[in-house]
């Protein structure tokens, strides 16, 4: 028996919208720790890891660990039927091939029930070790989204370089080239507008903009994004979900031949 209640139901919509561009089908895992997912895109060069901690839910019951294969577009179709202020309750049963969503309006005058079919998914689970990164950049998530979108109209790849001067995003394409430098800036009215660059070693890595642009679908989840870079590791683009957990995207850098 599994029952999760989230008063801020719109959060679940945002989570699904954040990852469905990258992954079509995914296996959601439920345990005492929380509601989580790990999935790779179809070409296996990017990975998404989601965690919504049990403490973040208004009600959380999970009698035993359970994995549920879901199609994210179908999930989005169901969740789109919920109002933005609705309370969402998600229910599952051991051995059942369906799950259910219940949407309650804040005034309790409308209650909707949706049942969704589960899928069999052969998912490959990877162990992601804790790592020390050469550089960690924190910046407003909207700024990062803007940069990826702008550069994506010029080139296919972005070179992210971190020096003590700041972080530089560069691209090159048929029509020309572009460089955007963001300097550390903590002199702002609100902490979410800050850009901070934590550098242990300078680092410069190349990534496919198509994936970076897909990661920015998570922008509505968080005001800030954290980009962790190391030459030996996939980049981690993390959107923290207040009081609940995170969505982390991993992308392998392109390598010189």
């Amino acid at each position: 028996m599994l029952e999760l209640r989230l008063v801020q139901g719109s959060l679940l919509k945002k989570v699904v919208d954040a990852i469905r561009d990258l992954v079509n089908d995914a296996s959601f895992d439920c345990s005492a720790t929380g509601f989580s997912l790990q999935a790779m895109d179809s070409s296996h060069v990017a990975l998404v890891a989601l965690l919504l901690r049990s403490e973040g839910f208004d009600h959380y019951r999970c009698d035993r660990n359970i994995s549920m294969g879901m199609n994210l577009n179908n999930m989005a179709k169901m969740l789109r039927c919920a109002g933005n202020d609705d309370i969402i309750t998600f229910k599952g049963d051991d051995g059942s091939d369906t799950v259910s969503f219940m949407f309650e309006s804040p005034t309790q005058d409308k209650i909707s029930d949706f049942e969704m079919k589960l899928m069999d998914i052969d998912s490959e689970r990877l162990g992601i070790p804790e790592a020390k990164y050469q550089a960690i950049v924190r910046m407003p998530s909207t700024e990062f989204a803007r940069i990826c979108k702008d550069l994506g109209s010029i080139g296919d790849t972005v070179v992210i370089s971190v020096t003590k001067e700041g972080v530089k995003f560069s691209t090159r394409g048929d029509i020309g080239s572009a460089n955007i430098v963001c300097r550390q800036n903590t002199d702002v009215d609100k902490p979410e507008q800050a850009t901070t660059v934590e550098m242990n070693d300078p680092v410069s890595l190349t990534f496919a903009l198509r994936y970076m642009n897909s990661f920015t679908k998570a922008t509505p989840l968080s005001n800030q994004v954290t980009i962790s870079l190391s030459s030996e590791l996939p980049v981690v683009v993390e959107y923290k979900i207040a009081e609940m957990g995170y969505v982390r995207f991993y992308l392998a850098p392109k390598i010189e031949e």
């Binding site: 060069v45 990017a46 990975l47 990877l126 390598i255």
Partner: peptide, 14 residues
């Protein structure tokens, strides 16, 4: 084009 390794190049399967 620059080659791009897969995730399993970096992270081991469970």
């Amino acid at each position: 084009a620059m080659p791009q390794p897969r995730m399993t190049f970096y992270f081991r399967r469970f």
